[in-house]
Structures are given as structure tokens and as C-alpha cells.
């Protein structure tokens, strides 16, 4: 009896876990290539709106998933392209894409919602969130974790992983070693942002309905989750799980421990900073430190004396 209850508690966390884990996994993977990803919150929010809209129009949440991934990938690759092709500030490019993401999400979401309302009024209830049966919830744990392990192997064992780390550490040296920096960063964006897009669809499933501003700040939470785990795919399972549980049971926790909601909301962010301090102040620095060239402008013909 008790164990069933525990299991059901855990299963409730599944959509939040899937959303946060996939997004932060993608975030870490992409940033390993050296592009500072400040676009994440905007694109995450956009992914939710696009997933919602595609789900509403097609009536099929899997179409929504694909659409969310495609939208995220489009903007992620745009960020990777402009920051690598041109020696520009990653921060400025990322934040402008973030704003664009917020804006487009609002426009798309509002339009889709009125369509949804119209359909409902005429008796049609289009399905736009992923299924949430117990089996589906178990899969929401299992599939992301398997993806995470796969990503760990890609990062550490393959030439692609070495190339991504190389361009993140030092794009000039990587070029000299024979790496096509732009190609590698585009691949990192393609893969990383498809996960971020998938994460936003998970988020939509978790919150169950779209409203204006849906997902705002949750991209940043994914960002913090990824940082707190030093962008390590396996460690991220832990931080994502913790953050997801915290988010899902925020209210319960507040009640149980008489915690102010403000304090509860603060925890993830403080943990993220604490984790950064822990990595940089201890020998973990070598393993989990950010890529050396993260956010640095890249110009191939730079004078490198």
C-alpha cells in the first residue's frame, strides 16, 4: 500500500522531470560547443507555444512535439550560426533571440488558443499534450535517462564529442586541428536544441494548458540545472530530478515545512550558484569547469600572438 503511494508520488514528477532534464541536457550539450546560450528561456517558451499550436491545429500531440523541436532547432541553429560566422557578442545575440522567442510565443499561442476555444465551442477537443498514463509516465523517466546516457557516451567517447569539446575550449586551435567550427556548432545546436524543444513539450504536458507567459523563467531553471551539474549529462539527472520534485511539490513542501514560497523558489537558484562555487573552488574544476571559450567572440583571422 505504502509503496504504491510512493510510486505514485514519484510518477507525478515525471512530466516535470522530462521537461527539465531534456532541456538542461540539451542546454549543456550545446554550451559545450562554446556558445553562451542565453536564448534558452525565450526558445523554451516559444517551444511550448509552438507545441501547443501544432497540437491544437493537428489534434496530435506528437506533431506538437515535432513542431516544438523544429522551432527550437531553428532558433538554436540561428544562434550558433551568427555567433560563429560573425565575431559578435553571444550574450547580445542570445538575449535578442530570447526576446524574439517571447514575442513569437505570445503571438502564436494567443492565436492558437482562440482556435482551440472555437473548436471546443463546436464540440471538438483536440489533444495537444502528451499522454500521461502511468506507463507513459514511466517512459517519461526511462527515455530521458537513456538519452542522457547516450549523450554522455557521445560526449566522451566519440569524435563528435571531442570536436564539440574542442571548439568549446578553443575554436582557433580546433580550426588548426582540422575541425570545421561552424559545422560542429551547428550540429551541437541541432542536437541540443531538439532536446530543449522536446523539453518544452514535456513542460506543456506538465502544466496541461497554455496561457500567456507559459514557461517564462523555466528555461532559466533548466539553465541553472545544467550549470549546477557542471553540464555533465549524468549528474544532470540528479539536479533535474531534485528541481522537478521541488517544483512539483512546491506547495506541499511549503505546507509541510511551513516554508515561505519565496524561499522555496529561491532554492534552485541558490543551489546553482553554490554548485558553481563548489566546482570552481575544488579540484572538480578540471572536470566540470565551463568550456574555456564559452561566450568568447570567434574570428578566424584573429591575431593570436
Amino acid at each position: 500500500m505504502r509503496s504504491i503511494e510512493v510510486i505514485s508520488y514519484i510518477l507525478t514528477v515525471a512530466p516535470a522531470f522530462m521537461a527539465y532534464y531534456l532541456a538542461s541536457l540539451g542546454q549543456g550539450f550545446f554550451e559545450k560547443s562554446g556558445v553562451l546560450n542565453l536564448a534558452i528561456d525565450g526558445v523554451f517558451v516559444l517551444g511550448i507555444a509552438v507545441g501547443y499550436a501544432a497540437g491544437v491545429y493537428s489534434g496530435n500531440p506528437w506533431v506538437g512535439l515535432l513542431a516544438a523541436m523544429a522551432a527550437a532547432v531553428l532558433f538554436g541553429m540561428m544562434l550558433a550560426y551568427v555567433t560563429t560566422k560573425f565575431p559578435i557578442s553571444h550574450g547580445a545575440a542570445g538575449l535578442s533571440i530570447m526576446f524574439l522567442g517571447y514575442g513569437l510565443a505570445g503571438l502564436i499561442g494567443v492565436t492558437a488558443r482562440s482556435t482551440y476555444n472555437r473548436l471546443v465551442a463546436s464540440g471538438i477537443y483536440p489533444q495537444y499534450t502528451l499522454p500521461t498514463s502511468p506507463t507513459a509516465r514511466i517512459l517519461m523517466f526511462v527515455i530521458p535517462v537513456l538519452v542522457g546516457i547516450l549523450f554522455y557516451l557521445i560526449e566522451t567517447r566519440t569524435k563528435l564529442g571531442a570536436a564539440i569539446r574542442a571548439v568549446g575550449e578553443n575554436p582557433h586551435a580546433a580550426t588548426a586541428l582540422g575541425v570545421d567550427v561552424i559545422k560542429i556548432r551547428l550540429i551541437a545546436a541541432l542536437i541540443g536544441y531538439s532536446l530543449i524543444g522536446a523539453g518544452s513539450m514535456g513542460f506543456l504536458t506538465w502544466i496541461a494548458t497554455w496561457s500567456e507567459g507559459a514557461g517564462v523563467n523555466h528555461g532559466w531553471i533548466a539553465y541553472a540545472i545544467s550549470l549546477a551539474a557542471g553540464r555533465h549529462p549524468i549528474l544532470t539527472i540528479g539536479t533535474a530530478g531534485a528541481f522537478a520534485a521541488l517544483a512539483t511539490y512546491m506547495f506541499a513542501l511549503q505546507a509541510a515545512y511551513n516554508l515561505s514560497p519565496e524561499i522555496a523558489k529561491m532554492i534552485p537558484f541558490i543551489v546553482a550558484i553554490g554548485a558553481m562555487v563548489a566546482f570552481m573552488a575544488t579540484p572538480l574544476r578540471k572536470k566540470l569547469a565551463p568550456p574555456l571559450s564559452l561566450g568568447k567572440r570567434f574570428f578566424k583571422e584573429e591575431r593570436t600572438v
Binding site: R157, T158, A162, A173
Partner: peptide, 25 residues
């Protein structure tokens, strides 16, 4: 112009055309 946080093998494989991106180190 080699990358400190990569191993020797990783640094070298980057320039070897015959190994595709999915090859193992």
C-alpha cells in the same frame, strides 16, 4: 595549438578524415 582538456588521442583524431564524427576515440 592543441587542446589542453582533450587527450592526445582526441586531439589527433580531429584531423583524421578517415574517421567520421561517429567514430569512437
Amino acid at each position: 595549438q592543441i587542446i589542453d582538456r582533450l587527450t592526445v588521442a582526441e586531439n589527433i583524431i580531429l584531423g583524421l578524415e578517415k574517421y567520421g564524427l561517429t567514430s569512437r576515440i
